[in-house]
Amino acid sequence: MITSEVILKSLGEVGTTVLLILIGTVLVEALLYLILMKWLKYKYALPFMLLAPAAIGLIALVIYPLIWELRLSFTNMSLKAFRDPAFIGIKNYVRVFTEPVLKQKMFFPLLGQTILWTVINITFHVGGGLGLAMLLNRKMRGKGIYRAIIILPWAVPQVIAVLAWRGEFNFAYGYFNIILTKLGLPGVQWLADPVANFAAMCMTNIWLGIPFMMVTLLGGLQSISSEFYEAAEMDGANAWQQFRNITLPLIQPVLTPAILLGTFWTFNNFNVPFFINQNELESSDILVTGLFRAAFQYNRYGFSAAFAFVIFALLLLFTIFYMRYTRSLKGAYES
């Protein structure tokens, strides 16, 4: 059922916004043209004009909100004190570490859970992805069909995939329990039992994430010339030695960014824990869903802001160490 009223309303809403963006861009460009190009005759006038719209957007929607959030994190803003929040110094940051961040859960157990979640997922993503990529990187019949089918989970919109998986974790009608019962085993309370719920989250996310790793690593494997392996065979290297000394080092340039990206995505994964759990069990929360719960369920805005910066600091530290350790992204920002 769709009415012309709805069509026009959403078109109008989108249209006016697009128009506003266009007018804003034209104004900014005209201003920059006059100042940088005509008045200052600046060497880099053109690149700055090319950058301006994107830069302004990012400043308005990323940098400004972050600064605003930093200020927020030193206040006690909540639903009660929405209009007149008071400045309370670093109390929120102290609270993150000393009081439960959710109703019962403290910060460090939540962090431990998130690390466990990330490690389990990345291990399976990389292991499964690399294994499948190596199987597919051979001359064989039906390779294209296998690849197309294995990629499919990546193509399913995440919301649908995760909601459908949640349905399959239903105690009586989901296929996991149907299969378990057919095998003569007792069914599992996937949605109510904390450990089973966490396992359910991991299974869903592993299923969702393997195709990306496989595709990326397959690209890396294909770029390795088979001459390396031929030479190694002549020297009598066995399969493990070839994997260890040729495959791994040569896919490093693809593997390292893929792991880094995968770690961020998994650590920050919202959809899977949120939809499998539907905000019911606090025990299944990871940091980012806990943050959402603290902000939008318990409405502790100031506190959540401090919580958010603690999470961000952790990610930043991880990145710095990882980059120091691998050095692989060095070229990326120095080039």
């Binding site: 972050l66 605003w68 961020f264 940091l287 943050l291 999470i311």
Partner: peptide, 23 residues
């Protein structure tokens, strides 16, 4: 600028949600 672009990929979605929602 390039490092900043990379860094934005680290920001958890629910972190930006709080200020954007209130604003």
């Amino acid at each position: 600028g390039l490092v900043f672009l990379l860094a934005t990929q680290m920001i958890p979605a629910s972190m930006l949600m709080i200020p954007i929602y209130i604003l």
